[in-house]
Amino acid sequence: MTHLAEGESLTAADVSWSVDGQHILAGVDVQVPTGSFTGLLGPNGSGKSTLLRGLARLGKLDEGVVHIGSDNVHRLPRRALARRLALVEQNSATDIDLRVLDVVLLGRTPHRAALQADSATDRAIAVHQLERVDLAHLAHRRWSTLSGGEQQRVHLARAMTQEPSLLVLDEPTNHLDVGHALQLLAMVQHSGLTVLAALHDLNLAAAFCDHLVVLHQGRVAASGPPEQVFTADLLAEVYGVEADVDLHPRTGRPHLWFHPPMVPH
């Protein structure tokens, strides 16, 4: 089962959203080049989830134009969009007694007509994507019995089963152990898809991303390749931390060393 994945670019121009007169996103420009792995960084509450939902047309935006390839996201029918862009949200829970494979098969929804049954191909795609997140052995388990990290990986398999060209991930590694986090990021990096992922671990972002966008209070504070974006000044300004930027001895990618803050007694 080899699906030749091809990416599409994503561009968002001048995206703004405010609630109760407070700007959550203000004039955000984002460019995610075709086939790139772009990391979306920023402290808690900087607007990452809001932006990702807006790009996937879940939340409404006050202003801004979003294009996938050459098509305006807001002009595409939902189904057509779901075949090109798949989203894994930060929190996505259910009380329904589903099995893991059922959840992954939901990814076939935009590809099938209302009365069409799941085909052998659908099943094969779903099983293959479960294998890629290392969970094929849990295909028949109940969803409610999985750990948080396993659920997160199943959601990724579900998104991949949509066979999109663009993968939008909101903190895909926040429940994962270091081994599975590295594995997952390597998997999406080599998927051939265009990937936009909100990440919290800056060293993981530096290790995997080609391109970074840093949000701070709803605005883009910096964007570019990791070696340009990660500077001691930016980290101090955006995260309020003191850090040295070094190069990773094996990969040559930037690596950050953080200093514990002084705590007044």
Partner: peptide, 14 residues
């Protein structure tokens, strides 16, 4: 079926 994880997931499934 797509509503299992809520309306947002349903929307993102098309």
């Amino acid at each position: 079926n797509a509503f299992a994880f809520g309306e947002d997931t349903a929307a993102s499934l098309g």
